[in-house]
């Protein structure tokens, strides 16, 4: 295998400083400067520690783990939304992130306006979004609701909108954080078909999910994160049974 790796993490760690002074405000911070400084330096939370992995071009890579293990943090790092505290992170290609429900949308705007907003934020020009807007609405199946503000949408409808915009972007590297779970059967099927299509086209995908069956269906390799560290990386048939076994007790 001499395929080039498009995502590379070398000893990546991510700590969140716990900014207590956010609640206290500037006044408290200045009034108690030495103590406040000390506490921001000392109280840190390590969400990911020393992660090394590489994902090849065209691979479908799954990430599994318990709640709070650090999966979303990992995708946030890959999407460039978060910056690693230490270590090296290399991304080669255009990232299309679909991180959690309603991300990249504004609740007060209509579905239509949000497609434009989201498309432009993700790197398309207005002309490019306009060219695809018909397809996007069609794929989402939301044409009856497209002029409603999306705060009235159900979670499944939000997932439909988000997924529809992003798959019409010609993604090179596609990041998905458990979003399909809220869609109904027919939409989940449509999404999986779309992702299978991407797979044959050679799009790299990183897929976070709690649905083991979905992971088994589309992933080539899986990374299991436990306690903010990599517990295991390998093929689906190695990692998934080991992970499932710990879930039962």
């Amino acid at each position: 295998m001499t395929k080039k790796s498009v995502i590379l993490l070398e000893n990546v760690s991510k700590t969140y400083p716990l900014y207590h002074h956010i609640q206290g405000g500037l006044k408290n911070f200045l009034l108690r400067l030495p103590k406040a400084l000390k506490s921001t330096i000392e109280t840190k939370f390590e969400a990911l520690s020393n992660i090394s992995l590489s994902i090849q071009q065209g691979e479908t890579f799954g990430i599994i783990g318990k709640n709070g293990a650090g999966k979303s943090t990992m995708l946030g790092l890959m999407a460039g939304v978060l910056k690693p505290t230490s270590g090296r992170l290399m991304i080669d290609g255009r990232i299309s992130p679909l991180l959690e429900l309603g991300g990249g949308f504004h609740l007060e705007l209509s579905g239509m306006e949000n497609i434009m907003l989201n498309g432009v934020l993700l790197g398309m020009t207005r002309a490019e979004v306009k060219k695809r807007i018909g397809e996007i609405i069609e794929f989402s199946g939301l044409s009856d609701f497209i002029d409603q503000p999306i705060r009235t949408y159900s979670s499944g409808m939000l997932a439909r909108l988000g997924f529809s915009v992003i798959v019409h972007l010609d993604p090179e590297i596609f990041l998905i954080d458990e979003i399909l779970g809220v869609g109904d059967m027919s939409f989940q099927k449509k999404c999986l078909e779309k992702m299978m299509g991407f797979k044959t086209k050679g799009v790299t995908m990183v897929f976070v999910s709690h649905s083991i069956s979905e992971i088994e269906k589309i992933c080539d390799r899986v990374c299991w994160i436990e306690n903010h560290c990599v517990k295991m990386i390998g093929s689906v048939s190695e990692v998934v049974p080991a992970y499932s076994a710990t879930m039962n007790d």
Partner: peptide, 11 residues
Amino acid sequence: GNASIIKKINF
């Protein structure tokens, strides 16, 4: 006011 955008997309 734009938290939902900033947290999810790098622009």
